[in-house]
């Protein structure tokens, strides 16, 4: 089963009337839409107000990451986001967890976040100063590559630092970022 089928399958498995499924072309402008939908749905299913900023940022980071991966590797494929409130404890009574899964179609895309992103930034600044003698075009390309890498690493650093319930996986047919937050008691 590929990543998007897995994500869609998540909805089917939960058989929940509260699930929301988003599919969007990998364009940066759609990430804001995904953030807005995620926060609106989180609020509706009962995620406490103090966690909504975290939901907004985390869903944005996961979607930005997926958009970046798709733009580089498969720009024709949509990014899939599944948002649902599930009964994780199995109480059979009420949903107790708000779960968001962002699925991509790119295999092997789970780089290890570098420890101390800030330290790497200081090194990068020195590298750039040392590269000043290079031809301008070449230096600019190298700089852009560095920024792409910085973005990917920082996106993962933000996700791992922000979300306690986080699972980033990758398989031969794609990967997914699964994030969960508690739903307050009604």
């Amino acid at each position: 089963m590929d990543a998007q089928s897995s994500a869609v399958g998540t909805v089917a498995k939960t058989e929940s009337a509260t699930a929301v499924l988003l599919r969007f072309t990998p364009q940066p402008e759609h990430v804001r839409t995904a953030r807005l939908v995620a926060v609106a749905h989180a609020r509706r299913v009962g995620v406490e107000a103090g966690l909504l900023d975290e939901v907004r940022l985390a869903v944005g980071e996961a979607c930005s990451r997926a958009v970046g991966l798709h733009q580089r590797h498969c720009p024709g494929e949509p990014v899939v986001v599944v948002l649902d409130a599930i009964d994780e404890s199995g109480s059979g009574l009420v949903a107790d967890r708000f779960v968001v899964t962002v699925a991509d179609k790119v295999s092997g895309a789970v780089p290890a976040p570098r420890a101390g992103v800030g330290a790497g930034v200081a090194e990068g600044a020195e590298d750039e100063a040392a590269a000043e003698g290079e031809p301008a075009a070449q230096a600019e390309i190298a700089e852009d590559d560095d920024e792409d890498l910085d973005d990917a690493e920082m996106g993962l650093a933000v996700l791992t630092g922000l979300v306690d319930d986080l699972d980033i996986t990758s398989g031969p047919d794609g990967g997914s970022v699964r994030m969960g937050w508690p739903v307050k008691d009604f």
């Binding site: 944005g60 990068g124 600044a125 750039e128 700089e143 910085d150 920082m154 933000v158």
Partner: peptide
């Protein structure tokens, strides 16, 4: 709102 892409731009500015 600020995400990691924004952080990356600020880091790029700092390097420059």
């Amino acid at each position: 709102f600020l995400d990691s892409t924004g952080l990356g731009v600020l880091v790029g500015g700092l390097k420059r």
